[in-house]
Nucleic acid binder design. Structure first.
Lengths: 245, 245
DNA sequence: CAGGCAGCGGAAACTAGATTCTCACCCACC
DNA sequence: GGTGGGTGAGAATCTAGTTTCCGCTGCCTG
């Protein structure tokens, strides 16, 4: 008996090839099903969250909406927190993709402006399509598990670092490390959009962009950009960015 | 019946003077005691929080430490959330006072630098004296009740607005509204210190200050300040200031 | 001094929500 | 036809916040 169990459990790593094939075959189906089910829970959760406009739903509500039982839920997720986290990562992944796609054309500073403004809009709490994950859960998540938020933001930071790097190569920026600049820009856009701590009226996307631009770009370049922007969008009171709740 | 109840409950406001005097006298003692007890709960909560280094304590723990019962706790606070909020407001008030006191001397930009750096330090999560209220609870609070956070920050914003106004009057700043600049500065310092979303190494206070300074001050003034700071700490290494002229 | 009353301590009860457990069932596979 | 792992349904458990109950103690008032 000792021999048998030893043969089964202590097989030399050289034999592991066929073993993994067998395991892979016999678990592929299970994994596919698991992935599908998890997705169904995620969809249900998204639906509930959009209805309630907040992350304060109960696990039961999600389960009721999904074609599975509570028991299964806990088979696929460690708990509510992990559900939220997964949802957050998924949404963030999509959002980052679309931010990147929407800002892939043009001069470096144009792209940077585009991506930061879009990021601001995405994180603003009072937007048309409520995103409780970004405006509400992200803050909580950030308080509890900053590493995971950082991981979710990483692709965006990477991308913005590249754009910043290009702008720097074009001689448009003050000297500095692109990656750290990118982090500062993302933080500023995200948090200033998310909530505002001091102003009676929320800080607008225009203000955030001007602040960020000034922070990293020398005056002559910034003046030129901002003047051009102002003469193109004549009105002094930028009506299109006023949040209409 | 209607007459009596009407006389008692609908007394004309002209009679309310003596009424309030009576009420005031008979409740003053009660109010003083209440205030003292509430303070004892607050002290106990602070102690528990410092021990645990987080706001994840239970009401029971606080009550056990305070010389009063759970029942009394709920007589003085609407619940745990209100306890935390009160604590936050108290700490924030003290912190703001000390920020203001520590930055009351000097030229406007020196004062601004001082107050923003101190604010950064205050909000940094990995401080010697852990401040779970600022690094942890503030985020949660901000997600749930931004108005209250805004109220707690208001005195600081007012103060910084003044400093910014003085700097502007001295011709050191680009044109802009002091109050909104102040809000952006506070947001940037607070949130960038609190958590960092994108950098492998945390953004430092120096970086935040430079970012903020650049954002609101024209290049010639900023260059001058930053050069001076750099030559004071280390030998000159700034050959290139502005690639595009 | 008796009665009423407001505040309080102590402890149990209540609640909501998350998480886990029990048990029966079903169905692909042997 | 068996059978075992995964599953549905829902009860049970656990946690932490909140509320309630009961009896005690001062204190004011008639």
């Amino acid at each position: 008996m000792a021999g048998v169990s030893s043969a089964l459990t202590e097989a030399p790593s050289g034999e592991s090839a066929w073993r993994s094939r067998v395991i892979e075959r016999s678990t592929r189906v299970a994994r596919e099903r698991a992935s599908e089910r998890a997705q169904q829970f995620l969809d249900a959760a998204r639906a509930v969250m959009n209805e309630k406009g907040s992350t304060e739903f109960t696990v039961q509500e999600v389960v009721d909406r999904a074609p599975h039982s509570l028991r299964s839920f806990y088979q696929y997720f460690d708990g509510k927190y992990e559900l939220l986290l997964t949802l957050f990562e998924e949404e963030m992944g999509l959002a980052v993709d679309s931010l990147i796609a929407a800002s892939s054309e043009g001069a470096p500073l144009d792209r940077l402006e585009r991506v930061l403004r879009d990021l601001y809009d995405l994180c603003a709490p009072s937007r048309v399509s409520k995103q409780p994950l970004f405006s509400e859960f992200a803050f909580r998540l950030l308080a509890d598990h900053p590493e995971e938020v950082a991981a979710a933001f990483a692709p965006l930071i990477n991308y913005i670092s590249e754009v910043v790097g290009e702008a720097a190569d074009a001689g448009l920026l003050r000297p500095g490390r692109p990656r750290r600049m990118a982090a500062l820009l993302v933080q500023t856009a995200t948090f200033t959009a998310g909530r505002n701590v001091g102003a009676r009226q929320p800080i607008t996307g225009d203000e955030v962009w001007e602040f960020c631009l000034r922070a990293i770009v020398p005056d002559n370049v910034a003046d030129q950009r901002l003047e051009r922007a102002q003469t193109m969008t004549r009105p002094p009171l930028t009506p299109n960015t006023c949040p209409v709740t």
